[in-house]
């Protein structure tokens, strides 16, 4: 709801028209929104910790493997496709730019470092959010509104252990593997556009890739993939798990809104945390 509409509504609700209220109301709304955010952030952190504590329990391995299949294995094709075209575009654009300064030999360095340090983890995380994250929110949300989660409670099956922990574990396993796949396919894609199409030297390309990439670049990429995995899995599970508590709607619409929120929030948090992690790692 827009701020002006909120102010209008507060007057319609008969709230007292104190002098200066018009001036303080925006701050009050800003404050309550901030408090709401802090509340949710705190709740999500507790949610994550409780879920992580429930990963090493009996009968969890089978569920984790199942989720690795859904989140990881079934995302492979889309990750490979996006990786290939990202690499090809990167190769094409970089070659054009480098030719202008006579540095086309650095194509391998530019592409490999861009993909491994930055584009690989970020784009992989965003693609998994779109493909698997939204499905996680929708699935858990529907289970919530159709009382399936309550049914788990009545059967004395811990819903966090049964539904959330395996997904978080599976995301932590899948994200780095898919990121690696993205990086490799991206480097090959760049080879296709830069070497085959544009005519850069193949030997120089691979020599530069090999010589410029250090182990730290790879581990930094994995750190990012790990952070994004935790963020995406937590946000998507949290949004679905509490879909019934959304104040703006109920039922199927609440699940739809929860799914939208999960995807948008995950993407935003991926980019924000990418900056934070990069600045810490550099």
């Amino acid at each position: 709801m827009k701020l002006s509409a909120k102010i209008q509504k507060s007057f319609e609700n008969g709230e007292p028209r104190r002098p200066g209220r018009l001036l303080t109301l925006p701050f009050a709304l800003l404050g309550s929104t901030a408090l709401n955010w802090v509340n949710h952030a705190g709740a999500a952190v507790i949610f994550l910790l409780l879920a992580i504590m429930r990963i090493p329990r009996a009968r969890q391995l089978e569920k984790v493997i199942q989720q690795v299949y859904y989140i990881g294995a079934r995302s492979m094709m889309i990750i490979m496709l996006v990786g290939l075209f990202t690499g090809m575009v990167l190769g094409l654009q970089s070659y054009h730019a480098l030719v202008k300064v006579g540095a086309e030999g650095a194509l391998g360095t530019l592409v490999a470092l861009s993909l491994i340090r930055e584009l690989g983890p970020v784009l992989t995380a965003i693609m998994i959010t779109a493909r698997a994250g939204s499905a996680i929110t929708a699935e858990i949300g529907i289970q919530r509104i159709s009382e399936q989660i309550d049914a788990l409670d009545t059967m004395h099956i811990d819903p966090l252990r049964y539904l959330v922990s395996p997904r978080i574990a599976a995301a932590i396993i899948s994200f780095p593997i898919l990121t690696t796949l993205f990086d490799l396919i991206g480097i090959l894609g760049s080879y296709v556009s830069g070497v085959w199409i544009m005519g850069a030297n193949a030997g120089t390309y691979f020599y530069r890739v090999q010589s410029s990439v250090e182990m730290k670049d790879v581990t930094d990429g994995f750190v990012k993939a790990f952070v994004f995995a935790v963020i995406v899995a937590t946000v998507c599970c949290y949004q679905g798990y509490f879909a019934h508590m959304r104040s703006e709607s109920r039922g199927a619409k609440a699940v739809g809104l929860a799914t939208t929120s999960a995807v948008v929030l995950s993407c935003v948090l991926i980019l924000v945390s990418d900056y934070v992690v990069t600045s810490l790692l550099l």
């Binding site: 009968r59 699935e139 159709s146 009382e147 399936q148 049914a151 059967m155 004395h156 099956i157």
Partner: peptide, 22 residues
């Protein structure tokens, strides 16, 4: 439950077996 709350991604057999398995 009034609306049964069966797990729609599981067969009838798996639904009934769930509390025993878990």
């Amino acid at each position: 439950f009034q609306d049964n709350a069966l797990f729609d991604s599981m067969t009838v057999y798996d639904n009934i077996a769930l509390p025993l398995r878990e």
